[in-house]
Amino acid sequence: MLKPTYPLETPRLRLRPFTLGDLTAFHAIYSRPDVVRYLYTEPLDLDGARESLERKKTGRTELREEGDALCLAVERRDTGELIGDCMLRWASEAHSGGEIGWVFDPAHHGHGYATEAARELLRLGFAEMRLHRIHASCDARNTASARMMERLGMRREAHLVENEFVKGEWTDEFVYALLRREWEAGRPS
């Protein structure tokens, strides 16, 4: 079980629960075709963004049982601007597994913000929940996400060929993972 004290802070970011007040910024991110290109959804109109925020993001602030997810807004500490979101899901209690994911506004790509947020999710999963293994996946064409997972120290464990039919086409998927002992060995002292 995990019930973090919010907000979670990293050197440059604040990870916090979503609120309905995030609708404008959330819509600005998820309405972009380039943002949802490798996701299962199409760009969201304002009503779709509101529904997604209410159903999938707000209130998901603790992990009580397998299948629960933390869905957190990511904002810059210096400006307070919402720049993306990240997720830690308790994937398996029996196998002590978790999953992480993220979506960021392209205006903030290339600054290491997504990597910084994902590192905090790994810390939560490994140090606080004591998970054994955390995985993440991406569309194989999403080279930026694949590179980021490698920067996090995750290893590519699978290249699934044409495993899903998404948005009218067969897509490949990369699966990356990291074990707690690997995370502990790679942390700075």
Rank of each mutant, 00 (worst) to 15 (best):
M1G: 08
K3H: 02
Y6D: 00
R12T: 02
L13H: 10
L15K: 07
R16A: 06
D22N: 15
L23V: 12
T24G: 11
Y30D: 04
V35R: 00
V36W: 02
R37G: 12
Y38I: 11
E42A: 08
P43I: 00
L44C: 05
D45T: 07
D47A: 15
G48L: 11
R50Y: 10
G59I: 02
E65I: 14
E66C: 03
E66A: 05
D68R: 00
D68K: 06
C71R: 07
L72V: 02
V74T: 08
V74L: 02
D78I: 02
G84M: 00
G84F: 00
L88E: 07
R89H: 06
H95R: 12
G97M: 11
G98Q: 11
H109D: 12
H111V: 06
A118S: 01
L121H: 03
G125C: 05
G125F: 05
F126I: 02
M129I: 08
M129R: 04
R130F: 11
A136S: 09
C138R: 02
C138Q: 09
D139P: 08
R141W: 05
R141I: 00
N142P: 04
A144M: 01
R147A: 09
R151E: 06
R156A: 14
R156W: 15
F165T: 15
V166R: 14
E169V: 14
T171M: 12
F174C: 05
L178H: 13
R181S: 12
P188H: 13
